[in-house]
Design a protein around this nucleic acid. Structure first.
Lengths: 238, 238
DNA sequence: ACAAAAGTGTTGTACTTACACCCATGA
DNA sequence: TCATGGGTGTAAGTACAACACTTTTGT
């Protein structure tokens, strides 16, 4: 065996830091929004950023993300609440030192105004559009992470029953359709959507309740599955 | 704002190391195989493992993976050859120190017997089945990484034109079908598969050549697209 | 009665599946 | 001639998109 390179010992080099960044999606006012925090530390002090922070020595990666989310925004979550998006580690992504960040994403029903804590000055829920269009710049490479998370979300709506997790209680089929329309930025045929989701077994459970509607015929109310599951046939996006 | 937690400075703690692990799939002898190296260092000295190694201070994550692949197995690759699978960072995954590893995967046509180099004693191409069944144990959490990469590969065959990248030159449609059958572990109808891939525009380019067949009617030879692209309609796996 | 939203019917097209069958070659 | 794999034909079944239409409520 030949060894053309000298042995590399990670102890010889300045340390890496490992962090997490978290994208939490919700729908409010018929727009897709994400939970953001205003930084209270340099670099990017006062800039908006994804919640997140450094992994501690004996901490699991997902646990870090859940802890930071709780510290910075008071949102408490279950294990497996977050889905891993990937690792972001360009050498220059943090001016202080080399940081590799593991990004996660999740969906929550519309929630109470978040409370800030930890390293965050404020926590707020802001439209994803505003970030992607550049009107709302984010710290570090967080706009790229948010953009990648959005694609993961759009794809998950095609392939899984995830959409129901945007709902906090029993919902109408048109509420579910609205989720698709908001996330995909495209209108869907109400009749065809109705059939599609009703025919998919294991997705909706009819509560027997109906809305006392403000306008139009009352709608049946449904609940989603207890766990997000893959769909046999996708809900076609195009 | 309240700060219930003391500020955390990553410099206060023992450093993390960031590494990469790489899954390279190929098909040989009608079996799905992966490139593995035999470790020449503790821990897990002499055990089989995925190729990979530590990220250097000024190195991009994908660049690390490509460099390690070249050092350990002499396989030279282009940028964007690798697809990121995710980050693996359980606190106890490496007994020496805290290591977070970013995993990548890729497909190559069957290749010459790989040459070992760097930290690897040997490099070889071994059946994925043998790892997943437990007959061939791997170091660290590499069996889990390989299993996750296999699922990503199976899914990519459904949704993209990736299958052609298993072929080194012009190929028959039945060669392409064999890729699906080997990766999915399931036989496909030859006639229907033929129509499906021929009708998908942007996938196959007819070279005009045919095989001088050993048995049966000669087959047209095709080449794949220059870039892997998503399919409008998936090749259904189930 | 009218507006509005829920939900069902209908029809054409596209795709999938199973499997029969023909085609072109080597032995 | 036969065996072998390449490739096409065909028909049933399924799914989807477009859109008309009926149902059930509030005003």
């Amino acid at each position: 065996m030949t060894t053309s390179e000298p042995a590399y010992d990670p102890h010889d080099f300045p340390p890496f830091a490992v962090a997490t960044d978290i994208v939490v999606f919700t729908i409010r006012a018929d727009r897709l929004q994400a939970l953001l925090v205003q930084r209270n530390e340099d670099p990017y002090r006062l800039a908006w950023a994804l919640p997140g922070g450094f992994v501690r020595p004996d901490e699991d990666l997902e646990q870090t993300a859940r802890r930071e989310l709780a510290e910075e925004t008071r949102i408490e979550t279950e294990p497996n609440f977050l889905t891993q998006l990937g690792a972001y580690g360009a050498p220059d992504r943090d001016p202080r030192m080399r940081v590799v960040s593991v990004a996660w994403w999740a969906v929550v029903p519309d929630l109470a105004e978040p409370e800030a804590g930890g390293d965050a000055l404020y926590a707020d829920i802001l439209p994803v559009d505003d970030v992607l269009s550049g009107r709302l710049p984010l710290a570090f490479d967080h706009a790229k992470i948010l953009s990648d998370a959005l694609e993961a979300l759009r794809s998950a709506l095609e392939e899984t029953t995830l959409a129901t997790t945007f709902q906090s209680g029993p919902f109408r089929i048109s509420d579910l359709r609205r989720v698709y329309e908001v996330v995909w930025g495209r209108e869907l045929d109400p009749g065809n959507f109705q059939r599609k989701v009703r025919q998919t077994s294991g997705w909706l459970a009819d509560t027997g309740e109906t809305t006392s509607s403000k306008a139009g015929r009352p709608a049946s109310l449904f609940t989603g599955p207890s766990k997000v599951t893959p769909l046999d046939r996708p809900v076609r996006r195009s």
